[in-house]
Design a binder for these strands. Structure first.
Lengths: 189, 189
DNA sequence: ACCTGAACACCGTTCAAGT
DNA sequence: ACCTGAACACCGTTCAAGT
């Protein structure tokens, strides 16, 4: 269907990262409800069934997209001295990465984790444990902070809510206020 | 398709609340991805197009379901002395109501608000303002606390995540810890 | 006013067939 | 190995027709 002058996939082979990238483009343009395999295929100048050679199904594609976001958020070099600074940093980074994509909150909730959650938890909690938190407390605090960021982004991406709240509160500022509150409120070990 | 002994809708007329109830049943059984109009119609012993006389489309049905949850959460008589107690109470209530339905987080993110957000905000912020917060700060704090609850529920309902985290943290307890932290961390006016 | 029957466009997915 | 062509089941939605 595309007939632009420069093909998006000029002779190059189709692979998973390319498909995921195209899917993000479709997501940006049509939103989560409009994310369809035919549109992704069109964008790559390929027939729809071609995607199935590389990706098991649409659910898997969504999971791959979600993982791509999670990885960007997790790959942040955790700066900061104590565990409070680290938590703050991680929450900000999480929000930033999610806001890069339209409807990312809905996307992540629809996805099913690909890697086993145990190793993920291990990796994410590690820097906090270096700062003196137990594994248990580190995970608990981390979960709270990420839940906060996720919920906040969900609100920012809910069109109607966003349009209104923009007049009442400053998202950036209120997010910071809430984040500072929760991190400051956590008890020290 | 149903052929049980007691029909779910014995001669009674079809109306919106009945449809919404049936939709919740389908949601409970098949999850958000399996929520289909044909299943809702089957459950009411009605042909699918019959639903369209009462509800504009599926998006509207989803919005009605989401509003049903929001209203339950908002209709809570806000107990508590100061604004901190009120915020805590509202967050708990929000989580409770959401957890009553499977995939409620995904449902609410897919829905588009029906009532105009301005009056909703007004109503929700009112009790906080009676306790001394300005409209601006009340909304900001409220948004943070509800975002936290929403994000937390999203994690609890993410099957794979839930299965694992259950072994590591106690949801009830960690939610409380996070909630107490954020509320305690908010600055007084 | 309220619901049925039949149809349409669209989507995810499968699979034989091509190269 | 990698992709096309054609098909299938299913879904949201529309609409004329019934009562």
């Amino acid at each position: 269907m595309r007939q632009g002058t420069k093909p998006l996939r000029a002779g190059s082979k189709l692979d998973v990262p390319t498909i995921v990238d195209a899917a993000f483009d479709v997501l940006e343009e049509y939103g989560f409800d409009g994310l369809g395999l035919r549109l992704v295929a069109d964008r790559l100048d390929v027939q729809t069934p071609a995607l199935y050679w590389h990706v098991r199904n649409k659910a898997m594609l969504i999971s791959l997209m979600a993982r791509s976001i999670s990885e960007s958020a997790a790959h942040a070099k955790v700066e900061g001295r104590g565990w409070r600074d680290k938590l703050t940093f991680q929450a900000r980074w999480h929000r930033r990465e999610m806001l890069k994509h339209r409807d990312s909150a809905r996307l992540m909730l629809a996805a099913q984790p690909l890697e086993d959650p145990e190793s993920v938890a291990q990796r994410l909690a590690a820097p906090l444990m270096e700062s003196g938190l137990s594994a248990r407390v580190a995970l608990s605090y981390y979960a709270s902070v990420v839940a906060f960021a996720m919920g906040w982004v969900a609100y920012e991406q809910s069109q109607a809510l966003h349009d209104f709240l923009t007049h009442m509160i400053d998202f950036e500022e209120s997010f910071e206020v809430g984040l500072q509150a929760i991190v400051a409120g956590f008890a020290a070990p």
